[in-house]
Structures are given as structure tokens and as C-alpha cells.
Design a binder for these strands. Structure first.
Length: 421
DNA sequence: ATGCTCCTGCGAA
DNA sequence: CTAACGTTCGCAGGAGCAT
């Protein structure tokens, strides 16, 4: 038996913790670069503001209704998330942290009564200890638990932010499934929903009753598993141990378009530095680095360009200088003048544990390099992220993202506390 | 026929 | 005033290649 616990309007709820004036008002949090809406308060949803709506298209409506728009502050959200997750971890047998605002929990061996009262207790504890409102969905597969959470959030399944599909009658379940579009199911996005609808499988109940073998043939094993899970046959286990990452991406849109190789070099070096830090934090090494640049696809009249160049590494490494050299080589190959670039980034792939790689008998520089990177990491951890940087990664950084309405890092930075000013 | 790598598309949050 | 549309991850499956 699985529970899926999901925080309500998570980023907005985080902002409200420290700014009570946001209570009762329409509030949205914007994606990086103040681009799109990624979190909405109930009041904002009531105004018809949709998920992923570009902010510039909402400006007029927002002014009219007094909508508060905030830049995203992932430092704050990550810290609040850690508090929610550790609180839940203490109260649960098995926990899989699925994303920044949701996790699966193992509720096996409980009666329906026990499950529902346990879920209520979780909600109250999170509200008291962290201050974040959450909803809980419960069922016998992860896909159904996600769906149950969806019903709980919409208030379709009765009381108080908890929905246990296994505590309901089959008639009640049927009613919910018959009216819920397939696009609301975990794993079914826009493309699949369109195809399924064309085949007459428009609602959850249709897919649940479909022949799994036929689904496998016309679509994929993934969708077959989804169909089985809708029938309460658990195909996807709770992931108890966190598998090491297979790739690391660092990329970002520019605040303003960039056209010089010099600016792109800075940005690529910056991202290489960030990604290499993550790589070493994971205790991994990379076999290849990919360099990615692209123009702005939302300006179709301008010349379009979108390339990534994969550069294999002679020996797998986590050394920033080596990765940077490879990245510069890749960038050189794909840079084209006369393009207004809007985004650049890098990708580290073929990740492996640093412990398992063969060391080159004739290479005496590797261990010195490793020590050097460890020292730099330690200094940057202690003194702040950009204390020691690559000279090439830029000072002025004209390409930095827009972040016009950012809130303070209330919980992780003393200097950002309002009383420090 | 089989198995590999590389690349693209899709989905998720 | 203008122009202004996210990021990071995993998985499936097809293309291309070698055996």
C-alpha cells in the first residue's frame, strides 16, 4: 500500500511562510529568468492563470487584479523541502523522495482506518512543524496513489486533503475514474493523451479496462505498466535506495541575447564549474561532456540554431580544468557568428563512481589535480560559492538571468534576514 | 539476427 | 519606453553500425 504526499502550491506556500501579507492574495512564482508561472496560489488559479503561462502575457491581468509575482528562490524551497522530507521520514517506515515537493510512503500492513488517520496525522505534523499544507493520496499502486492525491487536491474525494482509493466502494471509484481525463494520469502527457483520446480511451476508466497486451503493442511497456497499475497491480516499487545520477545538466537562458564567442565561453565555463562541483559531490567522474547552445525558438523570424557537441574525455574525470578544456573545444566546433543565442549549457554523461575507474599508471598529475579540486571545493564551501572561480567564467556576466522579484534566503543566509538591514 | 552506442522525443516536477 | 516563453532528470525506441 502506497501513499503519495504532495505539498500544496509548494513554492507559493514557502514564500507565504515568511511573508504573511501574501495570505489571501493571488500570488505566483516565476521560473528562472522570470519566464513562466510555475506555482500559483488558489486565488491565482481562480483568476484563470494557467501553469507555465509566460509572465509577460499576464502583466496586464496581473496589474488589474493585484497579482503578486515573485522570482523563484530555489535556495529557500530546497531548505523547506528538506524539513518536510525529514519530518516525514521520521514518521514513516519507507520513504521515496520523488521530487522537491512530494514523496511516496510505504503504508503496508495498516487497515483503512489506520491509513486515513495516519495520513491526517502527517498533515497536521507538517503543518505544525514546517507550516506547509499538504495532501495525501493512498492506493495499492504508485500510479493510483498519484491519482488519489489528484482527487484529494481537487476536493473530489471527500474530506480534508486525504483520499484513500482502497477505502472506497468500487462504485465510488468508478464514478471518479469515469470522469477523470487520461491526461491526469502519472506518465500520460500531452502527446499520449491526444493519441489515446483518438482511440476512444478518453478517461481513466477506459484505459483501466483496456487490454494490457494491446496497449503494449500499440504503445509501449511503460503505458502497459500504467494500465496494470490502474487495476491495482503494483508494477513500480518504492525506490528505497537512491540510485546514483547518470547525467548532470547545467544550463540557463540569458537575460539578454548574446552573440559573441567571448560571452558564450564565459557562460559555458560557468556551467562547467557548477556541474563539476555536483559531479564531485556525488563522488563520480564523467566520460564525456556535451556543449549546448541555442537561439530563441520564440523568435521564429530570427535565424534559428540549436546544437550540442559531445566531447569524449580521454580518461573519465571530475577535474574542472580538464572538463573546461574539453568544453571549450566543443564550443569552438559549434559556434557560429551572426546568431542571437538565448541559452547555453553543458551536460556531463557516462557518469561512474570515482572509486571504480582504472587509474592511468603513467599519469602523475591526476592525484595532484584531485587534491587541488578538493581544496577549491572546501574553500568555496566555507567562504561562499564564487570565492575561487575560473578566470574565464566572467566577472560582469552580462548574460546573467533576470531575477527582478526575488525574496530573501530567509533560512540559509544571515545577511538576508530583514533585521540585518 | 543480435547487440551496442548515440540521438531524439516524451514525461515529470 | 521596449521586449520579454524554465531546468533537470530518466526511460524508450529508432538509426546507424559492427559482429
Amino acid at each position: 500500500m502506497f501513499a503519495l504526499l504532495d505539498c500544496n502550491n509548494f513554492y507559493v506556500s514557502c514564500e507565504r511562510l515568511f511573508n504573511p501579507r501574501l495570505e489571501g492574495r493571488p500570488v505566483v512564482v516565476l521560473s528562472n529568468n522570470d519566464g513562466c508561472v510555475v506555482s500559483r496560489s488558489n486565488e491565482a488559479k481562480a483568476l484563470g492563470i494557467r501553469m507555465a503561462e509566460p509572465w509577460f502575457r499576464l502583466r496586464a491581468l496581473a496589474r488589474q487584479h493585484g497579482v503578486v509575482a515573485l522570482s523563484s528562490n530555489y535556495t529557500l524551497y530546497a531548505d523547506i523541502s528538506a524539513r518536510v522530507m525529514s519530518t516525514l521520514g521520521r514518521l514513516s517506515a519507507g520513504q521515496e523522495i520523488y521530487s522537491i515537493d512530494e514523496c511516496f510512503l510505504d503504508l503496508s500492513g495498516m487497515s483503512a482506518q489506520e491509513r486515513i488517520s495516519h495520513a491526517q496525522e502527517l498533515r497536521q505534523t507538517i503543518a505544525r512543524h514546517v507550516g506547509i499544507p499538504v495532501c495525501v493520496g493512498i492506493a495499492s499502486s504508485k500510479t493510483l496513489a498519484k491519482l488519489a492525491n489528484h482527487f484529494a487536491k481537487k476536493g473530489l474525494a471527500g474530506q480534508d486533503g486525504v483520499c484513500d482509493l482502497d477505502a472506497m466502494t468500487s462504485h465510488q471509484r468508478h464514478e471518479l475514474f469515469a470522469h477523470c481525463p487520461v491526461g491526469d494520469i502519472w506518465g500520460i502527457g500531452r502527446q499520449l493523451a491526444k493519441q489515446l483520446q483518438a482511440m476512444g480511451l478518453a478517461h481513466v476508466e477506459d484505459l483501466r479496462r483496456a487490454d494490457p497486451g494491446a496497449i503494449r503493442n500499440t504503445f509501449s511497456v511503460t503505458l502497459q505498466r500504467t494500465a496494470l497499475e490502474l487495476n491495482g497491480i503494483a508494477c513500480i516499487d518504492l525506490a528505497r535506495d537512491i540510485a546514483p545520477r547518470q547525467q548532470i545538466i547545467s544550463s540557463r537562458s540569458f537575460g539578454e541575447p548574446v552573440d559573441t564567442l567571448a560571452d558564450l565561453r564565459e557562460a559555458i565555463l560557468y556551467h562547467t564549474t557548477r556541474a563539476a562541483e555536483k559531479l564531485r559531490a556525488d563522488g563520480s567522474v564523467a566520460h564525456a561532456i556535451g556543449v549546448h547552445v541555442r537561439s530563441n525558438p520564440f523568435q521564429p523570424k530570427e535565424p534559428q540554431y540549436d546544437r550540442t557537441q559531445l566531447v569524449p574525455l580521454a580518461q573519465p574525470t571530475s577535474d574542472t580544468m580538464r572538463l573546461a578544456r574539453a568544453a571549450m573545444h566543443g564550443l569552438q566546433q559549434i559556434y557560429r557568428p551572426g546568431i542571437r543565442y538565448k541559452k547555453a549549457g553543458i551536460l556531463l554523461t557516462g557518469l561512474q563512481s570515482a572509486n571504480h575507474i582504472e587509474t592511468d599508471l603513467f599519469d602523475q598529475t591526476t592525484s595532484r589535480n584531485r587534491q587541488r579540486m578538493q581544496t577549491i571545493d572546501a574553500i568555496n564551501r566555507k567562504m561562499g560559492r564564487d570565492t575561487i572561480v575560473l578566470a574565464g567564467s566572467g566577472i560582469e556576466r552580462r548574460w546573467n538571468m533576470r531575477r527582478e522579484h526575488v525574496s530573501p534566503d530567509y533560512t540559509t543566509c544571515w545577511n538576508n534576514l530583514p533585521c540585518a538591514h
